[in-house]
Design a protein around this nucleic acid. Sequence first.
DNA 1: CGTTCAGTTGACCATGATCAAGAGTGGTGG
DNA 2: CCACCACTCTTGATCATGGTCAACTGAACG
Lengths: 264, 264
Amino acid sequence: MSTFPADPRTPSAEPAFTSANPLIRRLEEYTDLSLPARHALEKLSQLPVQRIQAKRDLIRQGETPRQVYLICKGWACRYKLLPDGIRQIVDFPIPGDLCDLNVYILSRMDHSIGAITDLEVIEIGSDEFDAIATERTEIMRALWWQELVCKSYHREWIVNIGARNALQRVAHLLCEMFLRLESVGETDGYSCAFPLTQQDIADATGLTAVHVNRTLQQLRRSGAIQLEQRTLTIPDMQVLKDIGLFNPDYLHLARLHRHLNVKG
Amino acid sequence: MSTFPADPRTPSAEPAFTSANPLIRRLEEYTDLSLPARHALEKLSQLPVQRIQAKRDLIRQGETPRQVYLICKGWACRYKLLPDGIRQIVDFPIPGDLCDLNVYILSRMDHSIGAITDLEVIEIGSDEFDAIATERTEIMRALWWQELVCKSYHREWIVNIGARNALQRVAHLLCEMFLRLESVGETDGYSCAFPLTQQDIADATGLTAVHVNRTLQQLRRSGAIQLEQRTLTIPDMQVLKDIGLFNPDYLHLARLHRHLNVKG
DNA sequence: CGTTCAGTTGACCATGATCAAGAGTGGTGG
DNA sequence: CCACCACTCTTGATCATGGTCAACTGAACG
């Protein structure tokens, strides 16, 4: 990444078919990766997988990060704890997401990363990472893209919590997570696994669990969603988007138009 | 930035004295820049200055960014507008801040940038920028540091709006802005220029202007702040930090300990 | 001097918080 | 196999933080 060539994205009608590898799928939202780049990424994914139990932390606020984590399977959460014990979740990393490039730049974690579900992660040490960074500036550029997109999620979460009411907040969160899951192939038609408890949703939206409960019931009653047994179904995404004042631009999903059930 | 050398920060007791140039001051929070790097940055700052009137937008959501803006003088705001007209501010860029590196990676702005005060900005086109990026990976690394720190601000704003009450939110915002201003030499002892209207503060904290008014009065009555004629004075930072549950770690100010009136 | 904009104040209201109790579910060990 | 426990979800009653609406003040500016 010593130079910044022009944006390599091309509006190709049908790009090379996406991999089952979530990282590759994710990065291909941004650019059509070259074959050698894909191979380099495939090789990364063959590093030994670490398994983390649900509710454990990968890393805690204040610690010095030693490697980048690539989420292969399961949901994580980035969160901060206030002195009074309140937990604010600021993002839900899902398969294909990296936590965090700042390993190489910031010396201490300013937030914690916890496992929502059992996780499979790959820990990428500096050596492997530097090798990629050196060999394939194309990949580094795609990784920085991911970092900037995650920053865009953060901005939208500020808007969500600061400017929307309870119903809109919850609807918006469900839209975001569904589309992000869809973009890495983790949905099945109109449904996806949805492992968050109502307390998790509350900590992410700045509401209480009690009120999230009532809000979800309202969304269910209106027919906008089904949510039971940790499975979310969105029969008509447009309805949910309208409720949540959802505009998908901030997800920076270039290939959004190819996705099922989404008008953009 | 084709490789990631180890964190170059050293806990030197007294680094080379900081420049009057806010960008250099800002980047020196992260690393002691080499002399050639400083010269390259000084040269940047000699590009022609653009003046933007207060309340004008530098760039709007949906537009394609064409250059990086460096704020030299004045306050800006990043914000998003909801369909129902509500404005949520997600950051206040101040002198030394760049908006945005994503020019080179993201194709469309997902938010707008407006001028709070009259601004002086330098527009850095791709050519100048690529030259720096190529010649001085040290600078690129420092610029990415700034990007990641800004992302950390975003996270803390999510926490601020999602997990703090009105008094805490406003106190926290005042702490953050004062320390950020201090780190680029824009404070004067216990005081700084503070051009935000109560409506601006409201749009940044998810409150209403009326309630911000009452909250500021409470902070004034408690002696935590003085705020009049667009000048903010914080007689005892510790008091305000306690009110706002403020922990400065997320600012990633390595040289914080050198700052006046701050215990860390 | 009138207009505009920011700040201020008061009365009233509503969204969502708090508190409390109970139901359903899954896992664990006796 | 069942009893127990922990956790999540659900529901109702009540409360409070902060929103809404409206009017007024004061300063800046042409």
